[in-house]
Amino acid sequence: MLKESIRSYDIAFRYGGDEFVLILYKATIREANIVLTRIQNKIDEFNAKVQKPYKIQISYGFAEYSPTSNLNSEDLIKIADENMYKVKKEKKKSRPSY
């Protein structure tokens, strides 16, 4: 689903466990959100088509590289990871509690 959702020159790889990294060449955060929507739509279609006792879900975080910054790949992954946890926290807050 990831590879089908990105351009041929972008990169998708497993980072560890259930974590994946997408490197979107010369893409802004806005463009990354478009890719995220495309991936989420594919996941939603899969979940609707395949009747399993579980649903595939994703959590995500973005980091944007700038040639003027001193950030390396580890820094960018850390930023994306921190942003992912912020998104997860927001999702948790918005869920109804029973």
Rank of each mutant, 00 (worst) to 15 (best):
F46M: 02
S59D: 13
K92Y: 15
K86P: 02
G61V: 02
K92M: 14
P67N: 11
I77T: 01
I79S: 01
I29C: 06
R7T: 05
A12R: 02
L76H: 08
I39M: 01
I23H: 11
L2Q: 06
P67S: 14
G17M: 10
I23K: 08
G17H: 06
D44G: 00
Y54N: 04
E19I: 04
F62V: 05
Y54F: 15
K86N: 12
A12L: 04
A63W: 00
K52T: 14
F13K: 00
K78R: 12
S8A: 04
I11C: 08
G17Y: 02
I23M: 15
K55G: 04
D10S: 01
N41H: 09
L24W: 09
S94G: 10
K78T: 03
A27P: 04
V35P: 01
N47T: 08
K89R: 15
G17L: 11
R95C: 10
V21S: 09
G17V: 02
S59G: 15
N33Y: 10
D18H: 12
Y85N: 13
K55D: 14
E90R: 00
I56S: 06
Q40I: 09
Y54R: 07
G61L: 05
L22G: 03
R7N: 07
T68R: 15
I23N: 11
E4Q: 06
N47S: 04
P96N: 09
T28L: 03
L22Y: 09
D81G: 08
K49F: 02
E31H: 02
I77M: 12
R30S: 06
E4P: 01
R14I: 04
K49R: 14
N83L: 01
R30G: 03
V87H: 09
K55M: 08
V50W: 07
Y15M: 09
I23Q: 13
S97L: 10
E82R: 12
I43D: 00
F62M: 03
N41M: 08
I34K: 08
R14Y: 09
A12P: 00
I39C: 04
I6L: 06
